[in-house]
């Protein structure tokens, strides 16, 4: 589904990614680990072009989204992202956070369909009220799933970190993405809140969601991932199934890294 070919990234004169190639299939749960400054977060942020790649290709659903001529906004709809610091919209309530993007893109599609008189397009026959109603129902379902239905109308500033991150995850889910990128989703959380977020991610994995996760949670990686990547100095030094990866590391850098964190 995502084919990363020889991806490089430079910040001014500093080489951060030095040619990363990896193939990600539908349903893959990929954990990316590595020391800090290794380029793992940059790799993740390049996947949805939050950082424009300096070179290489990212073929997503058959389109090279690293090409600057591509309308990246269209492809990002299908690539959810969850941040270390949650980044919920502070000026929107919890349910508005979840509804904002689906309503906006659907209304945009509807207007385009009506303007171009695309009668066969399903967007042609909807109305704004209908879109909002559906988005609200969907958002409520998602909130019920994470047990925060009663928080629908409060502002994010009143939520705990774990609650915020779970809302951020369902905000990404509301767009029905093909893949969700997680950028250290539990690093900013108090220890007792890590569990609730990881549980939610596990249940997504069980449903077959494709996920790419930059994480320091080795236990989680071992349990949930079907492939683990070790990145250092902008290169994938080792990759493989978690069992083999953790119990029999081959690259000396990975051995050193694991000995420090485990």
């Amino acid at each position: 589904m995502i084919d990363v070919i020889n991806l490089t990234k430079k910040f001014d004169d500093v080489d951060v990614l030095n040619g990363i190639s990896v193939k990600i299939d539908k349903g893959d749960i990929i954990c990316v680990i590595g020391p800090s400054g290794s380029g793992k977060s940059t790799f993740l942020r390049c996947l949805n072009c939050m950082e424009d790649p300096s070179g290489g290709q990212i073929i997503f659903n058959g389109v090279d989204i690293a090409d600057t001529k591509v309308d990246i906004n269209i492809h990002r709809r299908k690539m959810g992202m969850v941040f270390q610091h949650f980044n919920l919209f502070n000026n929107k309530t919890v349910i508005e956070n979840i509804m904002l993007a689906p309503v906006h893109v659907q209304v945009k599609d509807m207007k385009r369909a009506k303007r171009k008189k695309l009668k066969d397009d399903p967007a042609y026959n909807t109305t704004k009220a209908e879109i909002i109603k559906n988005a609200r129902e969907n958002a409520m379902k998602l909130l019920e799933r994470i047990g925060l239905a009663d928080k629908a109308d409060v502002y994010p500033s009143t939520l705990s970190g774990g609650q915020k991150q779970r809302v951020a995850i369902v905000r990404a889910l509301a767009m029905n993405p093909d893949v969700i990128l997680f950028d250290e989703p539990t690093s900013a959380l108090d220890p007792e809140m890590v569990g609730e977020v990881l549980d939610l991610m596990k249940s997504l994995a069980d449903e077959g969601m494709t996920m790419i996760i930059v994480t320091h949670e080795m236990g989680f990686a071992r349990e949930v991932a079907n492939k683990v990547l070790f990145i250092d100095e902008g290169l994938i030094l080792e990759s493989g199934a978690p069992e083999e990866f953790f119990s029999n590391p081959k690259h000396p850098r990975l051995k050193e890294f694991l000995s420090k964190v485990l």
Binding site: M81, A101, M175
Partner: peptide, 15 residues
């Protein structure tokens, strides 16, 4: 305003 607000907006596909 925290740069993360803009990133989060862009990440869900808003311009």
């Amino acid at each position: 305003v925290d740069a993360g607000q803009m990133e989060a907006g862009r990440a869900v596909g808003l311009s």
